[in-house]
Nucleic acid binder design. Structure first.
Lengths: 253, 253
DNA sequence: ACAATTATGGTAATTTTTACCATAATTGAT
DNA sequence: ATCAATTATGGTAAAAATTACCATAATTGT
């Protein structure tokens, strides 16, 4: 099959040799919020083969025939961790030449393009898939964003981009409710936001009034008792009531 | 070269046959704002070969060896239109199987992945590159976003995504100043915003006070006379003064 | 019964947004 | 030269939102 120009579709013989062939991979930046201990976590995997042997890296996989990019991202994720509730969206594509050392030095062999995905999973729910079930036992672990080890490839850059996206998403989208339990207290929600956006992102009392006034948090009538103190009301997220608020900021930083 | 898993790097013989090979293209959603006539325009090209012969499509090109994605986007753009000032950023990657009819029906041949880019160019400045200089004369034209023809491939979807991004960018980033002349009136700026975000996005007087209070618009002391009426002050954008306002909303919709 | 603790619902001061309006400076017609 | 039309500019008052607090309620443990 002769190679064609995407736009003009003119058979471009003179450029034929210059066109790059790609393997396309997906890399997942998987976040998880531990509201008990106020830790924002990222899932990393310890590489066991070169290049970057013994370095931590983002979980990923190469895209197979007949598989969409998002399918591949889902597959990669579900191979590492078992979780019911999650949010997943595309992040960015990193495809500069030379980003993967496996690319041959000069115009030979395939290039590697990484389409990165951003995921948020429930921390309490997420279970690691039994290690060593496949080839060699892989080391897989949650790492706190503030204390990341040295990473393989350009994964540090991808994580930075993903972290930015997470903070933006949280301000404008109800993704927190994808991974919080069905019923939660306003304090749970506040801890979630504080863990991601940093301390003093907002006064707790003002956070409460703002969120409640928006009208998409419904009091279930049930109470949660955390030992000492007055029991907190349990709320649930009402997706219908949220509809008109799409793209409006939920909190301010 | 044996095919390797991006993450584990274990030579995966059992999957080798399933891995997809890709050609990677870039497609540009190139916007331009005509503030004289209040028109938001997109650059389209009339295809002259199958598939989608005689359909309008986004300008694009396939990525060459040694070329970054952004390089390819820049090259594609500069092959069609000559412009000094522009803003360019990556949009989204569309790579589902079957999005390009040239892909062979079942697991044979390459798949086509499109990394779309979003561009904003100065309308007054932009000149079409002499047509017919290369192969057959291509039809290239600006189209109003409200009146787009039927498009090739999934380009309509890409444009919708780009339009969303443009509106968001305008609210939070100073990209308007990348394509406005060095000196501009507040009315020029208002027309720009109104053309992109739609009528009654804001009261003109309030738009003025808000923007001026932010402090990154400097009065040059010069005046612009548009015939009738009081002459308007010419302002310029001060990038240094804007710095601390990054990611803060400039206007409200 | 009381201190400690956590949740909740306020309030007043401040700031921002919104919907207007009055005036200034120009052009073109009479 | 005068006046209407036109465009730019700088306000203001009412409404709404944000912010920094504080008082009280309901629980647990001593």
């Amino acid at each position: 099959m002769p190679k064609r120009d995407l736009e003009s579709n003119v058979v471009s013989l003179q450029h034929s040799a210059q066109l790059a062939d790609f393997k396309v991979g997906v890399d997942n930046v998987i976040f998880s919020v531990d509201i008990e201990q106020n830790r924002l976590l990222i899932l990393l995997i310890l590489r066991q083969e070169p290049p970057f042997s013994d370095r931590w890296s983002l979980p990923g996989t190469l895209v197979r025939n007949g598989e969409s990019l998002e399918d591949a991202a889902h597959r990669s994720l579900s191979e590492k961790v078992q979780v019911q509730n999650l949010y997943l969206e595309q992040l960015y594509s990193f495809g500069g030449p030379g980003r993967d050392p496996r690319e041959a030095p000069e115009s030979f062999g395939d290039r590697y393009l990484s389409v990165s995905y951003f995921a948020l999973v429930s921390h309490s729910e997420a279970q690691f898939i039994a290690e060593g079930a496949k080839k060699g036992a892989k080391k897989i672990a949650w790492h706190e964003v503030g204390q990341l080890p040295e990473l393989a490839f350009d994964h540090r850059e991808i994580i930075n981009y993903g972290y930015m996206r997470l903070k933006n998403k949280l301000e404008y989208s109800p993704i927190a409710f994808e991974v919080l339990p069905q019923k939660f207290t306003l304090n749970d929600l506040y801890q979630f936001y504080e863990t991601v956006l940093g301390q003093n992102f907002s006064d707790y009392s003002n956070f409460r009034t703002r969120l409640l006034k928006l009208g998409f948090l419904l009091d279930t009538g049930h109470k949660a008792s955390r030992g000492a103190g007055r029991p907190a009301s349990l709320y649930r997220f009402d997706a219908i009531a949220f509809e008109p608020l799409k793209n409006k900021p939920l909190v301010f930083v």
